[in-house]
Simulated assay, not measured.
Amino acid sequence: MIDIAGWAPEPRETTEVVGAAPSEALAGMLDVEPPGEELPPLWHWLHFLERPAQRELGPDGHPREGRFLPPLPERRRMFAGGRFRIHEPLRAGDAVTRRTELASSAVKQGRSGEMLFVTVRHTFARDGAEIAVEEQDLVYRSGDTASRPERAAFQAPVVDAPWTLRATADPVMLFRFSALTYNAHRIHYDEAYATGVEGHAGLVVHGPLLAILCLELPRRAGLKVRELSFRARRPVYAGQPFVAAGSPDGTLSIHAPGDVTAMTATFA
């Protein structure tokens, strides 16, 4: 039984001068030109990073404890989605303050048992004025023995959409994105752990990377995104060809082999 009685973390504020180097590095990883001083939507994930000491990490590579990590035994974390509302873009060279707070938490029953759904809200301010608000939806469950992973499909999906971006994330790309986001979760680089302990069919492509690739579609079409929402539905694995698809009407999605819709998103 999941018990989070008394778990009520206080908000936290951190201030960072936004540097240009992380965006230049991500642009290189995506084989695109650097974006300039304005950060594209979601590229702020390369900033305000947590850098725990090695002794503070758990067996999965994530911190064992943290202000916004629920007190669950053998906790496993899944990135479920989120929302982002932009009043003004974050810009390189600006001093930006991020206020982080627990927005909501709820215990729900899933196919694999009880799960804790947590929403964390980040509010970004420049010179005391709010410029953006992000909400991240995270799912936690207590660890159990991994089931036998399903065999991953590798046939390229066929997608008909006004915008498409075809990609395959290999272990090198996953390593580079983990480095850029300081993400030490072993499902992204340790295949034996990902399959044998977590029950995946291979190395897992980061949910945030899939979301960023979705937003590349309107960005490359020259559209300004002011609001977006996305939901991670199924994992994509290293070596699987996938397609980011979208339309000017504001719909976006990630399609993986086996007729899998891995992520859905909307923007305005």
Rank of each mutant, 00 (worst) to 15 (best):
R121E: 03
H122V: 12
H122W: 07
F124I: 02
F124E: 06
A125C: 08
A125W: 00
A125M: 05
A125T: 15
R126A: 14
R126K: 15
D127R: 13
G128N: 08
A129I: 10
E130P: 02
I131G: 06
I131M: 01
A132I: 03
V133R: 04
E134W: 10
E134P: 12
E135G: 04
E135C: 09
Q136D: 13
Q136P: 10
Q136V: 14
D137E: 15
D137T: 12
V139A: 08
V139T: 13
V139W: 03
V139Y: 01
V139C: 12
R141F: 10
S142D: 06
S142W: 01
G143H: 09
D144I: 11
D144E: 11
T145K: 15
T145F: 04
T145V: 14
A146L: 08
S147E: 12
S147I: 04
R148Y: 05
R148T: 15
E150G: 14
R151V: 15
A152N: 05
A152V: 14
A152S: 15
A152Q: 13
A152G: 09
Q155D: 15
Q155P: 00
P157H: 04
P157E: 11
P157I: 03
P157M: 01
P157W: 02
P157K: 04
V158S: 14
V158F: 00
V159Y: 09
V159F: 04
V159W: 07
V159K: 00
D160W: 00
D160Q: 11
A161K: 11
P162H: 12
W163I: 01
T164Q: 10
T164M: 02
R166M: 06
A167G: 00
A167Y: 12
T168C: 13
T168D: 08
T168S: 11
A169R: 01
A169Y: 05
A169K: 00
A169H: 04
P171D: 04
V172F: 11
M173K: 13
F175N: 03
F175K: 03
R176P: 11
R176K: 15
F177D: 07
F177N: 08
A179K: 06
L180W: 00
L180T: 08
T181Y: 03
T181A: 11
T181G: 10
Y182W: 06
Y182K: 00
Y182F: 15
Y182C: 06
Y182I: 09
N183F: 05
N183C: 07
N183D: 15
A184D: 06
H185I: 13
I187S: 07
I187Y: 02
H188S: 09
H188Q: 02
Y189L: 08
D190M: 07
E191T: 06
A192N: 02
Y193P: 05
Y193M: 09
Y193A: 06
A194P: 08
T195W: 03
G196M: 08
V197S: 03
V197C: 04
G199R: 04
V205D: 05
H206R: 08
H206F: 08
H206N: 12
G207C: 09
P208G: 01
L209K: 11
L209R: 03
L209W: 14
L210E: 10
L213G: 10
L213V: 10
L213H: 14
L213F: 07
